[in-house]
C-alpha cells in the first residue's frame, strides 16, 4: 500500500485538491461543470467529494457528504496514486475493472483533461508530506 493510513491519504489528497482549487485554470472549469464528483478509496479507506454545484466555489469535503454526487469514482488508493503520477491508462483501468465509475461516464471523461495539469503538482505534494521516496520508485 502506498498510503499507510486513511489520515495520510486524506492529508495528501486534500493538499493536492487544495492546490487544484487555488488554480483558477482548473477550478474554474470544475465550477462551470456544476458537477459533484465523489472519489471513494479503499486500502486505506477514504472519501473525498469535490462539489462545484453552486457554480461559485469549489467545495472539498473529506468523509461523509450529504448531497448526492453526479459521478462516483471508486478505486484502490494505490490506483489513485498511480493516476496522479500520470501512470494510469484510464481505458486500461476501466477495462480491467480497476476503476469504477457510477453515473454519466461522458461527464467524468470531460473532467480528465481539466485536472491533467495537477499531474505536475502531485510530486510537490508528496515531497511536502515527506513521501518523496515514492517519486524515486520508478
Amino acid at each position: 500500500m502506498v498510503f499507510t493510513s486513511s489520515e495520510e491519504l486524506e492529508r495528501i489528497l486534500m493538499d493536492l485538491w487544495g492546490r487544484i482549487k487555488s488554480d483558477p485554470s482548473m477550478s474554474g472549469e470544475l465550477v462551470r461543470s456544476k458537477l459533484i464528483v465523489q472519489f471513494r478509496y479503499r486500502e486505506p479507506e477514504g472519501c473525498l467529494t469535490v462539489d462545484g454545484s453552486d457554480g461559485q466555489e469549489l467545495k472539498l469535503v473529506w468523509g461523509q457528504y450529504d448531497k448526492k454526487p453526479t459521478i462516483e469514482m471508486s478505486m484502490k488508493a494505490d490506483v489513485a496514486h498511480e493516476f496522479w503520477m500520470g501512470r494510469v491508462s484510464v481505458p486500461v483501468a476501466v477495462l480491467t475493472g480497476k476503476m469504477v465509475s457510477k453515473g454519466p461516464t461522458p461527464k467524468a471523461l470531460a473532467l480528465l483533461p481539466v485536472i491533467r495539469p495537477a499531474f505536475n503538482i502531485y510530486p510537490e505534494v508528496l515531497k511536502q508530506a515527506g513521501k518523496e521516496a515514492l517519486l524515486a520508485s520508478g
Partner: peptide, 8 residues
C-alpha cells in the same frame, strides 16, 4: 440510473 457507469 443507479447502475449506469463502468464496472458498476
Amino acid at each position: 440510473l443507479d447502475y449506469q457507469g463502468l464496472n458498476n
